[in-house]
Nucleic acid binder design. Structure first.
Lengths: 104, 104
DNA sequence: CCAACACATAAGCATATACTAATGTGTTGT
DNA sequence: ACAACACATTAGTATATGCTTATGTGTTGG
């Protein structure tokens, strides 16, 4: 199940920290590791999980591997969340609109 | 961490099935169990997890306990997802708008 | 009041998960 | 060619998780 992989991937705090770093743009594995007190294999494994879930995608750049947010993963969560739109409080839509404006 | 509890709760397929049943309105524990091949304690434990995550809330109704979606949980996911709005594909917004219309 | 009901909690167990240490793979500069 | 680098993979281990069985708690009808 796709959703299961996604939610499992995001259930880990370290993986969410990694993923949130990517919200600002693409980064390589070492850059993603910076600041986190975690071994190199651990980051690599976390990135594999995020990738398998469709949340990130990678691109070799010489001996670096650049990671970035995969819109497909975000889309899956959005689609899932949309089923509960009836329960969205007003403030969420307000926030959403605000961020939309900030994008410009 | 609040987000951790929410994503962990949703990482289980059975719990998502239960939660999705509640998208249509409030139901008691037995009704939520119907159709799922799972023991009574299992449902009870799943509901405890969803409740601890802030995804559902309960209300005693005689000897039944009614569960319903807790908007706070949905709001948390929405807030989290909003950080990635830049990566939302167009179709998500389209779907979102469609569902909005269907609510009327 | 007490038996049946609706649900929760406790204890025990099998499996999944996140980690580390060790090793493997691919790339680059010299 | 080869040493250093960036990253991935493997194996092993401690802990977390989801399940079942057994039992507890609160509620209701007769």
């Amino acid at each position: 199940m796709v959703d299961t992989d996604i939610f499992k991937a995001l259930a880990d705090p370290t993986r969410r920290r990694v993923f949130e770093k990517l919200a600002g743009g693409s980064l390589n594995a070492s850059a993603l590791r910076d600041g986190l007190e975690i071994s190199q294999p651990a980051i690599s494994q976390h990135l594999a999980v995020l990738r398998a879930a469709g949340l990130v995608r990678e691109q070799r750049q010489g001996r670096f591997v650049n990671y970035e947010v995969d819109p497909d993963g975000i889309a899956s969560i959005g689609t899932w969340l949309a089923r509960y739109r009836a329960y969205w409080p007003k403030r969420i839509e307000a926030l959403s609109d605000l961020l939309k404006d900030m994008d410009q």
